[in-house]
Design a protein around this nucleic acid. Structure first.
Lengths: 244, 244
DNA sequence: CCGTCACTTTGATCTGAATCAATGTTTTTG
DNA sequence: CAAAAACATTGATTCAGATCAAAGTGACGG
């Protein structure tokens, strides 16, 4: 029952608006979008799409967090993306979902029927351009994440994840500063994101707390007394900051 | 001194041609591209770009293999992409290179000066559309790779890599079948791709050979007697095949 | 043909994270 | 409010892969 930070009106115009670049949407284009958009809400934990399902829409996250994950039939799972408000999901030109999509927290999506959205993309070049930019950003984020998964130890993985989520929530103004933020993931979801077990996540969170890098307020709120100190635990270069 | 599999004429028309979709390039568009394209060749091992360098071109791989990798200043390195012939590198709209790019084998690039390429993208919607598709494919590949890095053991990682390279080379007709192919990477490069050490790579290659999954002909040529058997070592689902 | 250099294989040991196993803490619900 | 369910912590042990160390192999230049 919290007030959504991005409300429907903000979302209601153009899916691209969320990333604050679609200044070029003409009024008639906006009403065209309105004609095939709709909202859907999900409870925390609910599945949205299973890998292989037909997907007749693309969508933009309005509030909440969703995960993309891929399973290996023996049960191992890897999260391959975390969608925060303003993130886009679905792929124009693709029928079947390539991943499982799950609502991690309570979630509202702004959905657009795929066919009309594709038509609009064909007619309106700047929508495609914006989508290209967003996809390139996501690709960068995915590649940064490969470094985390392939080369970082457990403590660095946790620190990287906290720093990324903190920065993203701050840049969306979901929180006033990167020093205090919501971590809307269970230990298991964190483990799936980081390629660890939930026990290791728990141990490293305890270690970061013990070392004063973070404090926990309640179960889901993280306080970072000194962001640079957290940053220095990630093993990253000072400059080339992570995207997400 | 090998004959390039994709020769300059094949490359010379449209960077997008490599992926066999740009049937819509008009003759004048092609000659427009010709006006600002050029070729560059690199020896195996040569650096092409360092992370943070100014990059005034985008390019398409004509022959050979290049790697994108990201270092952590303590020396750990993770490869975040492997570019085979037809792959695109560089990002329109971006000044600075986000990764180190290295010629893994002898390499020829077909380069386009960035500014005119960007202008052409703005004027010619289908070039941007094609780039969006390619970027989305790369994003899928990056995400599949996250599963490899995050959740697979050493043997599965090696098998996944071999299967992916075999399939890609076969689909490009660089080799007649996926059962025999070139592996143009040192053990160290494989380790950087897979998030392992070179010793572990070597041991697992030996194990796959011992178990009859692969044979080595010379140092760089791999023979796969039974591709399904290799595939079954990857731990993947039968259906959702890996991309790129 | 030999020596060098770059790369690879193999072995011995160590270690960080996984696994197995309680126990503790919240949240939900009847 | 009590009981259950879901989630989190902590401990003991194991094991896959890292690390350290030594040969082995092959390509190349003199």
């Amino acid at each position: 029952m919290k007030t959504p930070v991005l409300d429907f009106k903000d979302c209601g115009t153009c899916p691209i608006r969320h990333r604050a670049v679609c200044a070029r949407c003409e009024p008639d284009e906006l009403s065209q979008l309105d004609a095939f958009k709709y909202y859907r809400s999900y409870e925390a934990g609910q599945p949205i799409i299973w890998s292989g399902d037909r997907m007749d829409f693309v969508a933009s996250v309005v509030t909440g967090v969703a995960s993309l994950s891929q399973g290996m039939e023996d049960g191992r799972t890897q999260m391959v993306g975390l969608l925060l408000p303003s993130d886009f999901m679905g792929r124009p030109g693709r029928e079947l979902a390539p991943y499982d999509v799950t609502a991690v927290s309570n979630l509202t999506l702004c959905c657009f029927r795929r066919k009309p959205f594709e038509k609009m993309m064909a007619d309106t070049p700047h929508v495609g351009q914006r989508l290209l930019e967003m996809t390139l950003d996501e690709l960068d984020a995915a590649r940064e994440w490969m470094v985390v998964l392939g080369r970082k130890n457990a403590r660095e993985k946790i620190a990287s994840m906290l720093a990324i989520i903190a920065r993203r929530e701050a840049s969306l103004n979901l929180v006033p500063t990167a020093n205090e933020f919501e971590l809307p993931l269970t230990r298991e979801a964190m483990a799936d994101y980081l390629g660890l077990t939930l026990e290791t996540v728990s141990r490293q969170m305890s270690a970061l707390k013990r070392d004063g890098i973070i404090q926990l307020a309640g179960k889901r709120r993280i306080i970072v007394p000194d962001f640079d100190r957290l940053q220095s635990e990630t093993g990253d270069d000072m400059d080339g900051g992570m995207v997400a």
